[in-house]
């Protein structure tokens, strides 16, 4: 049994201009769009059907959420910088930016934790109202996505980084793919924030 060479792992296929991983991640993100789309759709149905719908600000903590928005946007920038540094061969600076991204993601989760625990402290649970139910579901699912991003990025900062020495091209592709996922997580939050907190 010899080594199996799967084509277009390193270099893009000529007619599509894409590597396998690049196409794969976009398809995955397409399915994620449908996942969050269904939940947003649920939000609209619940809101339209409700006799009264609370203003997010009256229940939720807008300053904390604004802080989280800033954190997540910054982490998106550090992520794309991590990729750009790799593109110009600055591996050390790449690592710095990637580490910063992970740090910011943890910051996001910590703020989220503070938010959640205050809610629980005030006995605001998903069972209280459909507004809180959709709030916890959407932010919870988004939080899981953040966690997933942390796992992936930590892998590329630690054991996964070895590949830079052996196959730099492929490693860069991986960072790009991880970045695409991370920006998508940011993108979802950009919509969650006004929908849940401001409206």
């Amino acid at each position: 049994m010899s080594a199996l060479e799967i084509p277009y792992v390193y270099t893009p296929r000529e007619d599509t201009g894409l590597t396998n991983a690049k196409l794969g991640i976009w398809l995955f993100l397409a399915s994620e769009v449908m996942l969050f789309g269904a939940l947003f759709s649920t939000y609209i149905v619940l809101r339209v059907g409700a006799p009264v719908w609370p203003r997010g600000a009256s229940i939720l903590n807008v300053p904390l959420a604004t802080l989280n928005t800033v954190i997540l946007i910054s982490s998106s920038v550090t992520m794309v910088m991590a990729w750009a540094e790799l593109a110009r061969g600055q591996f050390k600076r790449h690592k710095l930016y990637l580490a910063l991204t992970i740090l910011l993601s943890f910051g996001f989760l910590i703020v989220k934790y503070v938010e959640y625990s205050t809610k629980f402290h005030h006995h605001l649970f998903p069972s209280k109202s459909t507004f809180l139910a959709i709030y916890f579901t959407l932010t919870g699912l988004h939080g899981l996505h953040v966690l997933g991003g942390i796992v992936v990025n930590t892998y590329f900062l630690g054991p996964g980084a070895k590949m830079w020495k052996t196959e730099p091209q492929r490693f860069m592709g991986r960072i790009e793919v991880a970045g695409l996922y991370w920006h998508f997580v940011d993108l979802v939050w950009i919509f969650l924030f006004p929908v849940l907190y401001l409206l």
Partner: peptide, 16 residues
């Protein structure tokens, strides 16, 4: 998504 919502209803007592 629907499965997650039904799980929430069953486990967290929400009313989707």
């Amino acid at each position: 998504a629907a499965g997650v919502l039904q799980l929430m209803d069953r486990l967290a007592g929400s009313s989707f």
